[in-house]
Design a protein around this nucleic acid. Sequence first.
DNA 1: AATGAATGAGCGTTCATTCAT
DNA 2: GATGAATGAACGCTCATTCAT
Lengths: 239, 239, 239, 239
Amino acid sequence: MNAAHTHAAQDADRAAKRTRGRIKRMPRAVRERQMLDAAVEIFARRGYRAASMDEIAELAGASKPLVYLYLNSKEDLFSACIRREAEALIAAVRAGVDPDAPADRRLWHGLRGFFAHTAAHPDAWAVLHCQARTHGEPFADVVAALRQELVDVVTHLIAATAEENGGGAPLPWQEASGLAHALVGAAESLAGWTNGRTDEVPSEWDTAETLMNFAWAGLDNLMNGRRWAPARSQVPSAS
Amino acid sequence: MNAAHTHAAQDADRAAKRTRGRIKRMPRAVRERQMLDAAVEIFARRGYRAASMDEIAELAGASKPLVYLYLNSKEDLFSACIRREAEALIAAVRAGVDPDAPADRRLWHGLRGFFAHTAAHPDAWAVLHCQARTHGEPFADVVAALRQELVDVVTHLIAATAEENGGGAPLPWQEASGLAHALVGAAESLAGWTNGRTDEVPSEWDTAETLMNFAWAGLDNLMNGRRWAPARSQVPSAS
Amino acid sequence: MNAAHTHAAQDADRAAKRTRGRIKRMPRAVRERQMLDAAVEIFARRGYRAASMDEIAELAGASKPLVYLYLNSKEDLFSACIRREAEALIAAVRAGVDPDAPADRRLWHGLRGFFAHTAAHPDAWAVLHCQARTHGEPFADVVAALRQELVDVVTHLIAATAEENGGGAPLPWQEASGLAHALVGAAESLAGWTNGRTDEVPSEWDTAETLMNFAWAGLDNLMNGRRWAPARSQVPSAS
Amino acid sequence: MNAAHTHAAQDADRAAKRTRGRIKRMPRAVRERQMLDAAVEIFARRGYRAASMDEIAELAGASKPLVYLYLNSKEDLFSACIRREAEALIAAVRAGVDPDAPADRRLWHGLRGFFAHTAAHPDAWAVLHCQARTHGEPFADVVAALRQELVDVVTHLIAATAEENGGGAPLPWQEASGLAHALVGAAESLAGWTNGRTDEVPSEWDTAETLMNFAWAGLDNLMNGRRWAPARSQVPSAS
DNA sequence: AATGAATGAGCGTTCATTCAT
DNA sequence: GATGAATGAACGCTCATTCAT
C-alpha cells in the first residue's frame, strides 16, 4: 500500500489479488507497483546490499526476469523506490499546510503531516532515512534533495519570520540553516522513536506537539533576537 | 588513528610502522588496533555489506587469516568496531561535563564534547550513525544502547530540572524522553551537517551554540510549565 | 537486402515498408525474408551466441513470438541463414562459368563470381566463414558441405586437366584435393583481406587476378608433372 | 601440454598429477598453466561465448573462484590463452628457419614448422583460427597481430626476392601483400583440412610439400616478372 | 606469529522460449 | 496474423571463510 495509490489502482490491485495464484497475467502498471511495494519492504528489512532480487521478486509474486524487464536493475529498482517514497513524503508534508497561515501554524501542520506519514509507512521511512543515505552517489543524491527541500522550507520559514519581527540583530542565513537542520533532525529522530516503540505509541498529534514545545520557544526567541549565551551561567532566554 | 589511543599505544604504532615491510611480527594488541582502525575506515567508506575482508586486511597490512584469527568473523569485527567507537564517543561526551554544574552548562559541555568528537572522527561517526543502525539485530542493539545512554542522560537532566523548578504541571517521564530524543536527533543531524560541509566548517563551539539556542528556550519553558498549544479549531485530517 | 531477392520480392518489400507502422500484416514470405535478413546482420555483428533473439526480432520489425512461429528456434534460424547464404554463394560462383571454356578460364570466372559476391554481401560472408564454422555440429555441417562443393569443383578441374595433359606421373586424387583446399583457402583469405581494408579496396577483378597469378602457374606445373622438390639433406626436426 | 612447457615445468606437472585428488595444493604457476590448458581445450570445443567458466574450472581440477583469482575474468583468460598460443605458434614457425638460406628453403622450413605445430596442437589452432577472430576487439587484435606477423614475413620474402631477381616490371608492395595473404590463407586451409581428416593423415612434410608445389611456381613466376593475364585464353605462365 | 592456496554458496543479470489473448 | 506477459535455467563473478604450512 502506498500513498500514491489512486482509488482506481487499488481496485485493480484488489482484483489482481483476488485471483492471485490462478491467473498471473496482469497489466504492467499493477505489477510494477507490486514490485516497488515489495522492494521497499525488503530494502527496509535487509538493507540495500543484503536485499536479494530473488526475495523481492518472490514477495512481489513475480519471477526475477520480470522484475528486470520492468525495472532494469537493482540500482534502478532502488532509485525508483526512493523517488516514489520521497515524493509521497513531500506531498504528505505539504498536504495540510496553509501557505497563508502564520509561521508557527505552518510548522505545526507540516510536522503533523510528516509524523503521520512516517508512522503510516514505516518501511518507506526506513528506506529513506536509513538505507538510501548510506549508499553511493546515485541514491544519496535523491534523498539529499528530499532532505534539502524540507530543510529549505524550514530555513525560509525561520529567516522570513526573523526578518519580519526584526527585533535586534538580524539572523544570519547560515544560522537559520543550522537551526533548520536541527529541527529536521529532531523530527527524524522522533519519527524513529515513535516507530520503534511497542508500548503505547503516541499519536502524530502528540509527537508533533512535543516537537513544537521543544522547538518553538527557542526559534521564537532567536527570531526575535533573544539568544542563549555560553558565558553566563544563568538561564538567559525565557522572557 | 583513534581517539582511544593512548600515548604509549601511539609510540608502539610508530615503531611498528617504522619497520613495516621488513619485520612484520608485532604484538597482538597493536595488530588488533590496526585492524579495527582499518575496518572503521572501510566500513565507513563502503558500508557493512559492501566492505570486503580483503580490503580491510590489506589496509591493516595483515593477511586475511590473521584478521580471522584475531577477530573471528566479519560480524565480530564490525561489533568490535561499534563497541570501541561507541565507548569513545560516550567518553568524549562525558569528559567535559562537571556533574555539579547547573543543567544548561552540563548540556552545553556535553554537546561540545559530542560535536568535537564527531568532527574529529568522521569515519567512526559514520559507522555509528549510518552503518550500524541499518543492519540486523546484533549491531543495531549495540548502537541502540549507546543512543539510549545519551538519551537517558538528557532525559534525567530534563526531568530533574523540571521537578526542581516545579512550576505548574509536572513534566511526564514519557514527554521528557521524547524531548531528549528530539535533542539527540537534532545533535546528530547537526553533526552530519557540519561533517558534510566543504565551505567554512563551523567550530564545535559554534555548532553547540546553535543547538543550545535552538533547544534551551523550549526546554526551559517546558521545565517551567510553559507550553506551546495548538489552536482548538484544527481539522485532524487523519488519512 | 540479399542477393537472392528477385525483382518481385523487392517490390513486395518496398510495399511493406511503405506502410510499416500503420498496417503490419504482410505475407509470410516477405516477413520471413526480413527475419533472415535481420538475423544475418545480427549474427555477423555479434556472433551466434551473443546475438539475441530480441535484437533480431526488433531489427526485423516483428515480435519475438512471430519469429518463433516462423522459424522455430534460434538454431533453426541460424541454419536457415546459413543455407540461404550458402546457396546464394554457390550460385554466384557458378553463374559466370561457361562449362565448355578451358580450365583456366573456368577458374578465372568462378573466382570473379566468388570475390564479387563476398564483397557485395560481407555480412553473409562473415556468417558463413567466421560464425558457422565455430559452432557445433548442426551448422558446421552445412558450411562444410558448401565448402566441399567448392573444393570438389576445383578438385575435378585440377584432376581432369592433369589427366588430360598426362605429362609424366599422374596426379593422385588426394593431392588434387589438397591443392583444391589450398586454393579455396587462399580465396577465402583474400576475401577477408579485401573486405577488411579501408583504404583503396581492390576490385573483384584485381583480387581474382592476383589469385590466378599466385595459383595458376603452380597448378599448371603440377598438372603437367613438373614439381617442386625439397633438397635431400633435410633434418626432419619432428618434435 | 603446450609447446611453451619447459622441462622443469613438466616435472612439476607430473608430480602434481600423481597426487591429484589427494593433495590439491600446488604452486600458482602450475595451477595457472593447467587452467590455460583446460581453457584452450574448452574454448576450442565450445567457442568463446558458449564455453562456461564452470566447465573450464572443472577440467582444470580447480574451483571457479581460483580461476578468477588467478586470471581475473573470462575475457582475461581468453586473452591469456590467445597470447600464449600465438607466441608458441610464431616460435614454431621461426624455429626451423635459417635466415641465410635461399627464399624457397626459408618458406619450406617455415611451412613445415607451421604444419607441425598446428597438427600437434589442434585445440590451440582452433582457438587462434576460429574463435579468436570472431570476437570483439580485445581478442581479434592479438590474433590480427599474429597473422600480420606471418603475412609480413612472407611479404618481405616475396618482395625481396622479386627485387633481387629484378626481371621485368617491379612487383608492387600491395600485390606482394595480397600474395602473402593468399599463401597464409592456403596454409590455414590446409592445416584445417589435415586436422579434420580421420583417414590417413598426411605428415607435415607432405602437407608442406603440397603447398610448396602449389605456390612456388606462381610466386617464382611473379617474382621474375612473368604473369598470368585474363585476356588471352591460353595457358600463359609456365616457361 | 603469519600466510599462500583453496572453496561453497550465493547474487545480479541475461536469454531462449512459451502462454493467453 | 500478431503480441504483451511471463519464466526456468544458466552464467559470470564475488566473498566470507578455512586449510596446510
